[in-house]
Design a binder for these strands. Structure first.
Lengths: 246, 246
DNA sequence: CCTTTAATAGTCACTGTGACTATAAACAGG
DNA sequence: CCTGTTTATAGTCACAGTGACTATTAAAGG
């Protein structure tokens, strides 16, 4: 616990820890799950791709730092960043994960709708930011490949028993778009009518927008629009077809 | 990420962070969920109860530190501690959670069978360690009440979709004991035959110990013995009666 | 118009579960 | 030794939720 040992503990007595945050920010675009990556400008791993993130400042919590870094590196307005779904994933603390010094990193997962185009240059850190499909992600700096894999597993399983999928959608969406989120994240094909039945009979998952409908890219019958409902958990869950973690 | 900013970063340049681990160690004893607490010997919060834990050493990962602290403060043999179920809960990083300095704490949850009697004195830190039923937990030091509440919520929901409940049982156990784990953690009463059917038809949840049986405290028909099976996830899950988090 | 595409409606069989009844095997006490 | 109590184990029945499928509706395009 915080201070079982503390004989007049001197903060500068030994090599200190640095604390950082790393962000695995996902979006669904064009039928593929994308993750936000930045290209590193400095050593170590200069030129490599990495997850966005940075140091936690002395008066910040890890979550505050995560939102600040995300705003800086994506150029999204603070207000948008303040509202989006951000969730702690886990903390990575292997002693040699950073070659320079002891760095403990708190990793977060964020889900955003497709809309925001990278707009990376706002940050100023000269690092370029891009959305990359998971299939095209190159080797990453530090242990970020592990973090990314953990984050992916986490969201795959969270879609099963939470209403998180709506975080990938714009404020108003069609059930076809929501279906596409599930199919993309799980990399499966779901039965459309069954999916519809499940979503609509789960209380609080989605709410119909009265009278609204949208033409789905020109083809087919217009779809009704829905908003995310107040529910956060799915009882019973919406299990994906195959095993727990294919 | 770990080092987007790093202009020849000087480790001693600013007030450093300390990194600690906190442990929420649970056991089921006598129909009540118990948590392991220690009484603090020093300020701050001297005399208060707190979760066991301590500083992460310069060459340790958080998980290594958690196992070491647990061994020190419970007196359990290293070998037992090395094998038990330990899982990262989340990291607590509010700037003022420790009045002395900036402390970021990685919290863990551990589940142990009833057997180990506190045996706290082995540690030497003079702090006394005790198992307390959750209903009798007093005010805790720092933000440990929050950590404990989070840990409790986590294990309650993990019993639903993982095989974790066996971690509360000795190596060989009866289905009645496993049932008691669920009933204690969820604070509900489950139908015995239905529970039995569910556990036995879930592949890999438990394995029968051939020919073995145990007298259940003298009363009633002897029960067959089982061991934990290889499965880790429960598909479909074993949902608790009421809402998601009562 | 007729075809294509996607949304929406509805059907049917099966699986898993909740509620419940029945039997078996130990012990306690008269 | 019989009887009641306790706990384990076996089995039944009805219903909810789901997977697989078929049918209909409403748009766009040639």
């Amino acid at each position: 616990m915080s201070g079982a040992v503390d004989p007049g503990y001197d903060p500068h007595a030994f090599e200190p820890f640095a604390v950082t945050v790393d962000l695995a920010v996902f979006t669904v675009r064009g039928g593929a799950l994308h993750v936000l990556l930045i290209r590193r400008g400095q050593e170590p791993y200069a030129g490599s791709w990495a997850l966005p993130g940075g140091f936690v400042l002395p008066r910040e919590s890890a979550e505050t730092a995560a939102r600040r870094e995300l705003a800086e590196e994506t150029g999204l307005p603070e207000q948008v960043v303040a509202a989006l779904h951000l969730e702690q994933l886990r903390t990575y603390s292997e002693p040699d994960r950073d070659p320079r010094m002891r760095v403990v990193s708190v990793a977060f997962t964020a889900l955003v709708p497709d809309l925001p185009e990278p707009a990376a240059e706002g940050g100023g850190d000269a690092a370029q930011a891009r959305w990359l499909p998971l299939g095209e992600v190159p080797d990453l700096a530090f242990d970020h490949a592990v973090i990314l894999a953990d984050a992916r597993m986490r969201i795959r399983s969270k879609l099963e028993y939470t209403c998180l999928a709506t975080a990938f959608c714009p404020p108003e969406f069609t059930l076809g778009e929501l279906l596409a989120v599930y199919e993309t994240v799980w990399d499966t094909v779901l039965d459309r009518p069954n999916f519809r039945r499940k979503v609509l009979t789960t209380p609080g998952f989605v709410e119909a927008v009265p009278g609204a409908a949208r033409l789905t890219g020109g083809r087919g019958k217009p779809a009704a629009l829905y908003r995310a409902g107040p529910a956060t958990a799915l009882h019973p869950p919406l299990l994906r077809p195959e095993g727990p973690t294919p």
